[in-house]
C-alpha cells in the first residue's frame, strides 16, 4: 500500500478510537480530556481503572452509540480502546 492509503486506514481506526474515548469520558463522567486516553492503554483494573459497574455502563453506551451488543463478549474486548474499536467496527480488523 502507499503511504497515503496506510494513513487513510490508520485515520479510520483513530476516528473510531476517538469516538469511543469521547463516549467513555462522557458516560463515566471522567475529568480527563478524551485524547488523554491512549488507544493501547489497559482499561479494566490497570490503566483507566474501570470496574465491573463501569463496564455495564459501557455495554449500554456502546449499543446506543454503535448499535453493537457486547453482552456475551469476554472481558478481552475491554483490553484497550483499540480492541473495543475492533468490536464496534469489524472492518478495522482487515489487514492493510
Amino acid at each position: 500500500m502507499t503511504i497515503d492509503e496506510l494513513r487513510a486506514k490508520a485515520a479510520q481506526r483513530q476516528q473510531t478510537c476517538s469516538q469511543i474515548k469521547k463516549m467513555i469520558v462522557s458516560r463515566l463522567d471522567l475529568e480527563i480530556e478524551p485524547g488523554w486516553i491512549t488507544d493501547d492503554q489497559p482499561l479494566f483494573g490497570r490503566g483507566l481503572e474501570l470496574d465491573s459497574l463501569d463496564v455495564l455502563e459501557l455495554y449500554v453506551a456502546i449499543e446506543a452509540e454503535f448499535g453493537v451488543a457486547l453482552y456475551d463478549s469476554d472481558m478481552a474486548v475491554f483490553g484497550s480502546v483499540s480492541r473495543l474499536a475492533d468490536e464496534v467496527d469489524p472492518t478495522l480488523r482487515a489487514p492493510a
Partner: peptide, 10 residues
C-alpha cells in the same frame, strides 16, 4: 502519529 494504529502493514 498518523500511522500509529493497529492493522497496518509496515
Amino acid at each position: 502519529p498518523e500511522l500509529a494504529a493497529a492493522g497496518l502493514g509496515l
